[in-house]
């Protein structure tokens, strides 16, 4: 008689938070070491320490806050507008036959248009002030929101809606208490995408007529081949992305604790 060998291993990768953080930190240290030991030329790739110094200089001079607040304001308003509009349209398209096919056709047609290409048009329509910047962000956020909301609404288990109908719940009650909570996981998941999209579009939106803002800052630094500040700006954008992702994660924990 021989022992039965274990065959059920593998295919179950675990998340090790320490490894995530450790890897990032390790890469940065490696980069810094390479730069300090002159293996990597710092002429066009600044060392992490240079980037940190550029960030510190920005913070000390107060410039950091000026750029950050200008961009955060545009992000907040643009994202909010695009999200609210996207949720409403997504709900309408998800719930009404009349809206469904026309709605999805329009969304599918307009979604793939690169928003950067539309910036000149937005300038003509909305001017070079805050309007065109916010609209660019809202436009970029709108379409993924509609698509995710429709998917979320579609994904609400039909049996729950029929249960609501069988108990005589009103249409609006069913939407509010069954459809929306049921679509919420998909909607929140969509927020991860739309916040990233908004940050990416920030640079495009701030290309025209923006004196202050992280996107404008990154563009100006690029023009001047000021690589320290360029990468500092990119680090800032990246940080904003990470923070927003964390916030959404907490929202999911809070609102979706029933899962």
């Amino acid at each position: 008689m021989a022992e039965v060998p274990f065959r059920g291993g593998g295919f179950a990768p675990r998340d090790i938070p320490a490894a995530s953080v450790g890897t990032l930190v390790g890469l940065v240290l490696l980069w810094q070491a390479g730069a300090s030991l002159h293996w990597i030329s710092t002429k066009f790739l600044p060392a992490p320490w240079d980037i940190a110094r550029a960030l510190y200089a920005l913070a000390a001079s107060g410039e950091l806050w000026v750029h950050l607040s200008a961009s955060l304001q545009r992000l907040a308003i643009g994202w909010a507008v695009g999200t609210v509009a996207g949720l409403v349209v997504g709900l309408v398209v998800g719930l009404f036959t009349l809206a469904r096919s026309p709605g999805m056709a329009v969304v599918s047609a307009l979604f793939p248009i690169p928003k950067i290409a539309l910036v000149p048009l937005f300038i003509i329509w909305f001017g070079i002030g805050e309007g065109s910047k916010v609209i660019t962000l809202a436009f970029g956020v709108f379409f993924p929101t509609v698509i995710n909301t429709v998917a979320g609404v579609d994904g609400v288990p039909r049996n729950l809606i029929r249960m609501g109908q069988s108990f005589g719940l009103g249409w609006w009650s069913i939407v509010r208490k069954i459809v929306l909570p049921g679509a919420l996981p998909a909607i929140l998941s969509g927020f991860r995408i739309t916040t990233s999209t908004a940050i990416i579009l920030l640079v495009a939106a701030e290309m025209i007529g923006a004196e202050k803002g992280i996107g404008a800052f990154v563009l100006a630094a690029g023009n001047l081949y000021d690589t320290d500040n360029l990468l500092a700006g990119i680090v800032l954008l990246s940080t904003i992305g990470l923070v927003l992702s964390w916030v959404i994660g907490r929202m999911e924990k809070l609102l979706l604790s029933w899962r």
């Binding site: 049996n159 005589g168 069954i178 909570p181 029933w258």
Partner: peptide, 27 residues
Amino acid sequence: ALTYVFQDFALLPWRSVAGNVSLVLED
């Protein structure tokens, strides 16, 4: 008047037991 009990229970996962029962009284 015409009230169902379902094979797959049809409970809202995001409401508690009391919440599921009170759902049908709220309108």
